[in-house]
Design a protein around this nucleic acid. Structure first.
Lengths: 385, 385
DNA sequence: GAGCTTATGTTCTCACCTAGAACATAACAA
DNA sequence: TTGTTATGTTCTAGGTGAGAACATAAGCTC
């Protein structure tokens, strides 16, 4: 319990609260509003903001006066303030972006990669091309579980527990890394469909299902940093064996693999995504067989969600990837099957099921969030101020 | 964000940290140790403790000097300090206890009840018989989900969403209430088998399975206060319909009902517990049919635990109720089946599965914890100091 | 048993923080 | 032009923990 609290810590604490409020706010606000929001006096707010402006963390710009009263200033990110960089490392491509306080994203560069760990060197080079003194922390989103936060396993790239410290080490800026599905969920919780909820869940449906439990706006990581493999619970009674080594996984019935299998395509990671999209298109166009496959997918999705809702009682569930298509095409079927899996007494208050609002930007946005989480800490601020 | 922080709040904050440290400590400690623990100076520690002694929250007693140095004092609960009362409301009986800072429990009274809400009046009367000015908060453990924290449903008593505010209202001391399975888990996380773990789970196995996810020593409640119905996920492929209204629940294969069903007994709540115990005894004595029933129960338990571990990645799982017997009789079978349900890459680090150490006292202990949680808050302390 | 060592208690000064009141200021409104 | 309103600014006061210096009470050593 070494979180000592001295008078000076108090100042840092309140400044961190202020910066966090600016970062999290949907709309920028004025200094006077900040004082009310934090429950501090106008004088104290002036002092806090003044120091943060000195430290180039906040900037005050005149607010257009709409009402009476003496004009005030808006609190905006400082134009020379720290930046988070965010990387989304996908199957064949990556994106690098810069994110300022408040979450505004500027895409800097993207590229393809050859599916080998060399990709990280390319990304490092791209970071270097855009690096300025303003770069504070880099957030990195990748697929695959990252055991204990440093052993990265990406099956569709054939990476078997690659040591993250060998990929991101000397020469890199301060970096935080996490799983894309979890970060997509975090993005929804912070800035998307799950904003403001105490208990929520997010699932990314691709070849299989990855997800995360979001509590108080934070994504849960588990004891070994590998929580979230909801797709590998036997929720729908499949008799097949999953490539994860278990029989009956939910993912066998939901996602691209399930669609592909139905049409004799080759399941597994990295192939068949187009076929799955084709199935969706044909289903939308009225093809009966494709429609049945999508029906089965949606029904299995709903059944699993209901089961999970019994256990974890989320207020809402958001979906990304294929889940967005399934909601668009088969919302009713998902909700019916979810209700059927819900304990009867819960059916009058089912979890809200919605498409995530972050779309493709989810992992990148989540990566930016964990980077900013690392910045907006008392420790970091003490250094800076 | 109204959690303002003024200099006075700072003092309260540090005093709360100190009291929390005393409450949570496995062994009492001295004032000098407290200073080191909290990272504050000896002078500050003296001031904090002095005020807490004034407020009759802490008491200093001379520590027996074993080493060199000037003798110091142990920090112990004040003999006239606040007390939490805790109630465990079970199927036919209840227990009332008094719990002091640090968690020491003194049983005050127990009784039977007639399964009607009148029981609460009896309990209130018992509280009154022991009530002193020292009673601060009452923690109440009951079975059944408590929707939104106030709509209590106990199926084996035939209580259908009874309004808690009608049972516990005017004339009651400040009361906090929660579910017995969740509180048993909380007790394990605070003072039992799950102490100190960041991510853990607890399951109470009776007629069916109730449980809770424990994160950072806190039991998760969900959006509607009804998280934890892990027994009502279809984890083991049962074809039966559950009384919860869903088909295939895990609870159909694990727990007393599953044992009873196998022997033609009447399943359901409130009956058959003796038969289940009888089956366990016969299995232990070598009876083949009973042994198979227990095997099936243990295997299904293990399979479900593995599936949940994939999703939530607990460091350890503790069990209470029938789970203790199953671990005693069939630990190997549980662990094998858990491993078989774990994704292959996790099998080298399976969750530790252990019997809870709180035994029957789990719900009562957990009820005391939530009561003390309500006391050890800045708001309550500000009133008192 | 005297003197040394060690750990803790106690006292005092200092730097820091926020609250609150009083006053100043810059817009809008009548 | 004058009043109203919301905000900025300044100053004082009360409270808090840090740190240094000193005091104290034990054990340890010779």
């Amino acid at each position: 319990m070494p979180q000592t609290m001295t008078s000076a810590d108090l100042r840092i604490h309140n400044q961190a609260r202020l910066l966090r409020a600016v970062h999290d706010a949907a709309e920028p606000f004025t200094r006077a509003e900040a004082a009310r929001l934090l429950g501090i006096g106008r004088n104290t707010a002036a002092a806090l903001v003044g120091e943060l402006e000195q430290a180039r963390l906040l900037h005050e710009v005149p607010a257009e006066s709409g009402a009476r009263g003496r004009p005030t200033t808006m609190l905006v990110p400082h134009p020379e303030g720290p930046l988070a960089f965010a990387v989304d490392f996908r199957e064949d491509t990556w994106t690098l972006a810069s994110v300022e306080l408040g979450g505004a994203i500027t895409e800097l560069e993207d590229g393809e990669h050859d599916r080998t760990p060399k990709a990280f060197a390319d990304i490092r080079a791209a970071v270097a091309r855009h690096e300025t003194g303003r770069l504070a922390v880099l957030g990195f989103a990748t697929s695959g579980p990252i055991r204990d936060g440093h052993r990265l396993h990406i099956s569709h790239l054939g990476w078997d527990e690659v040591e993250v410290r060998d990929l991101i080490g000397d020469g890199w800026p301060a970096t935080v890394i996490d799983n894309d599905a979890r970060l997509a969920g975090l993005a929804e919780a912070r800035r998307g469909a799950l904003r403001g909820l105490g208990t929520a869940m997010h699932f990314h449906i691709d070849f299989d299902i990855g997800g995360t439990l979001l509590l108080g706006g934070d994504a849960q990581r588990g004891a070994h940093h590998i929580a979230g493999e909801f797709g590998h619970m036997p929720l729908t009674g499949s008799a097949l064996e999953c490539m994860c080594g278990v029989r009956g996984c939910w993912s066998l019935d939901v996602g691209a693999n399930a669609l592909v299998r139905r049409f004799g395509g080759e399941t597994g990671y990295g192939t068949g995504r187009e076929l799955a999209q084709e199935v969706l298109r044909r289903a939308e166009a009225g093809d009966a067989e494709a429609g049945e496959a999508v029906d089965a997918n949606a029904a299995a999705l709903g059944r699993g969600l209901g089961a999970l809702a019994n256990a974890l009682d989320p207020e809402a569930i958001s979906l990304s990837g294929l889940g967005v298509d399934l909601i668009r095409l088969r919302r009713g079927l998902i909700e019916e099957n979810c209700a059927a899996s819900l304990m009867a007494f819960r059916r009058d208050e089912p979890p809200r099921i919605a498409a995530g609002t972050m779309g493709e930007a989810g992992p990148l946005t989540g990566a930016a969030e964990i980077a900013w989480d690392a910045i907006l800490t008392p420790v970091w601020l003490r250094e800076r101020l």
